[in-house]
Simulated assay, not measured.
Amino acid sequence: MFFELAALAYLIDLAFGELPCKHPVVLFGEFISGFERRFYGNRILPGALLVVSLIAVALSLSIALVYVCGLLPGWLELPVLAALASTGLAMNMLHSSVAALLTANNPKQALSYLVSRDTGDMTETEIYKAGLETWAENLSDGVIAPLFYLVLFGLPGIAVYKAINTMDSMIAYKTERYFHFGKTAAIVDDIANYIPARLTALLIAALAEDKRRAWHCLLCDGNKLESPNAGYPIAAMAGALGVALGGDASYHGQIKHKPTLGLPINPVDKSTLTQALKMKTGINLIVLTSLATGILLS
């Protein structure tokens, strides 16, 4: 277990956010785009080869970095590894990006940087609802899941996870172009996020003022979405806030019908999003306490 590495990496992310270097996700994205230009075919095999290739690259490079860091003086090895690992964590960036919806002059444009759905015709309620869903779902993808694999497998674990998650965000769409090409990436991402998504949902429910409602919504609505994972943190957030999330949304000009999670006990507005974002303090406390406990027991 890599509790010390994960704790220091998390603290670096909270303190500094994105470090002034080319982000690994950008490098993974460039690899995916280059592979797609050269080898694209809307079939399972090319997409599977992309998944295997990028995972191999991420694993090889991260193992090489671990080896190089092992050559550093002992006092420097852990901080350097933690700084590298922190680039796979996104609590600071996620929180600030979603919080920007509260102060943006053009909230629709700010939201368009965070979601793949069409934002041009959204109402104010729909904007804040999408912000809540983004905050809940990406707490898993951007914080808990990479931290989970960092604790288990060190730098290679978080590197491979971010490679998988980047492929999911770029090619795992049920569109004509990616239906077959992105299928393997989607399946691998579903597997990788299975446990972290549920841990995130439990974390959100634990921080809810009305824990009974949050747990009820999590248990009743968590499995309603097409994704086997995304519904759990979103349902927990809906229950925690007493709001209805999910529902129909427009993607690439097409309306996608999705079930509603939670009940519309409270309205979705600026104050609702503000309340959700305040969970950051509790999440940080639980995460850091858990990591510190792991350090003491290991």
Rank of each mutant, 00 (worst) to 15 (best):
I55W: 08
I55K: 14
I55R: 15
A56L: 13
A56D: 04
A56Q: 05
A56C: 06
A56T: 04
A56V: 00
A58I: 05
L59E: 10
L59M: 11
S60Q: 01
S60L: 12
S60I: 09
S60M: 12
L61M: 13
L61Y: 02
S62A: 14
S62R: 05
A64L: 15
A64N: 05
A64H: 05
L65H: 00
L65N: 00
V66D: 08
V66W: 10
V66Q: 13
Y67Q: 10
Y67R: 11
Y67G: 02
Y67L: 13
V68I: 10
V68P: 00
C69H: 00
C69F: 00
C69N: 06
G70R: 00
G70P: 03
G70V: 06
L71D: 03
L71W: 11
L71G: 13
L72E: 02
L72D: 01
L72C: 06
L72Y: 06
P73T: 02
P73M: 00
G74M: 09
W75H: 10
W75D: 06
W75K: 10
L76A: 13
L76M: 11
L76F: 09
L76N: 01
L76Y: 03
E77G: 07
E77D: 08
E77N: 11
E77R: 15
E77Y: 00
L78I: 03
L78M: 12
L78W: 06
P79S: 04
V80C: 04
A82D: 01
A82L: 06
A82G: 08
A82H: 10
A82R: 07
A83V: 14
A83H: 05
A83Y: 09
L84R: 02
L84C: 06
L84T: 01
L84N: 01
L84M: 04
L84G: 03
L84K: 02
A85I: 01
A85V: 05
S86M: 09
S86Q: 06
T87Q: 12
T87R: 14
T87W: 04
T87H: 08
G88N: 02
G88V: 01
L89P: 07
L89W: 00
L89A: 06
M91H: 15
M93R: 15
M93D: 14
M93Y: 14
L94V: 15
L94I: 15
L94T: 14
L94Y: 12
H95G: 12
H95I: 12
S96G: 01
S97P: 03
S97E: 13
V98D: 01
V98I: 09
A99V: 00
A100T: 06
A100S: 15
A100G: 15
A100R: 15
L101R: 05
L101E: 02
L102Y: 05
L102T: 09
T103E: 15
A104M: 08
N105F: 09
P107V: 02
P107D: 07
P107R: 00
P107A: 02
K108D: 04
K108N: 09
K108L: 12
K108V: 01
K108H: 10
Q109D: 07
A110E: 11
S112K: 09
S112G: 10
S112A: 13
S112Y: 05
Y113K: 11
Y113M: 10
Y113N: 05
Y113D: 07
L114S: 05
L114I: 01
L114P: 03
V115P: 02
V115G: 02
S116Q: 10
R117S: 11
R117F: 11
D118V: 11
D118I: 08
D118K: 06
T119Y: 12
T119R: 12
T119F: 07
G120R: 14
G120K: 14
